[in-house]
Design a protein around this nucleic acid. Structure first.
Lengths: 149, 149
DNA sequence: TTGCTCCTCACGTCACGTGAGGTGGC
DNA sequence: TTGCTCCTCACGTCACGTGAGGTGGC
């Protein structure tokens, strides 16, 4: 779940992160105290913000600009993450559906190109066709249905 | 989309709606002015709240109790509605998937109980079986695959 | 008449952002 | 040293809820 890639690298000091997000550095300290954005710290106790942190700061900035307070921002970010997950799950289901539809169609196609014979009659048919003058080529074409992957 | 049922009937005067939602009547007037809840009006210009309105008021009350301001409440209610729709859509997809899986399984079952014969050989097989002493009952069992609903 | 409704205005409270002020390490 | 960082405290602004005050119709 928690991806570990370049967007997690803690690279920006507070003044740079603040500028990238378009807010006051002091604001970032307040956000951290309230638990909205938790940057890493250097050994010297200096904050280091990752690209992901800055993204989050921008999102917060966008929402507060719309007049939403921090309690609302927190909740909204959670809900939007839920929505993303749901959408991904739905997209996966649609893909599965398409795959299955195609499989079903193929199965139907195969079936429609064929005549079906109860398995228990196969031996009898083979025997009957052996006694027929034209039987040899046709007899080989009587076969059990192949398993479908 | 907009359901029209008993929950839309405008039945409560402001004092009752306020009590049901656990808030001050004056608050309801403020909410209306801000566009959060829009009750119907009687001919005498008195507000009438529906069950759905009261539900919404309770939701607002719940969120503001969590310290979320009205701008946040509006957004959150929208997002939660989005989530409900997405969940319904996902549930529908899952149902479709199950139906299709069952159809595919049935198709496979039918196929596995049968031997398959290319259609162009059916006539030849029938002819061959006719000349076989045990052919009569078996010949009837050579048939084209039925269409699947 | 009583108790509601309607409205507007005003104010107390609180969240938020940000500036000030003093500290310390690259 | 300079310019950043760290922290805490304080204050201006604004959103929100709610009370007051006056009106009018079941």
């Amino acid at each position: 779940m928690a991806r570990r890639d370049s967007t997690d690298q803690a690279i920006y000091i507070i003044s740079v992160a603040a500028e990238l997000a378009g807010v006051h550095p002091q604001t970032l300290r307040v956000y951290e105290r309230k638990g909205l954005v938790t940057p890493q710290r250097t050994e010297g106790n200096t904050r280091r913000y990752s690209e992901r942190d800055v993204e989050r700061l921008r999102k917060i900035q966008e929402l507060t600009t719309d007049g939403i307070n921090l309690a609302g921002v927190t909740r909204i970010i959670e809900l939007e993450r839920d929505i993303e997950r749901l959408q991904a799950r739905y997209a996966r289901a649609v893909r599965d559906l398409e795959t299955l539809e195609q499989q079903l169609e193929e199965a139907m196609d195969a079936r429609n190109r064929m005549a079906m014979v109860p398995l228990r009659d196969v031996r009898r048919i083979r025997r009957a066709m052996k006694s027929d003058e034209l039987s040899q080529p046709a007899a080989r074409r009587v076969f059990p249905a192949p398993p479908v992957s």
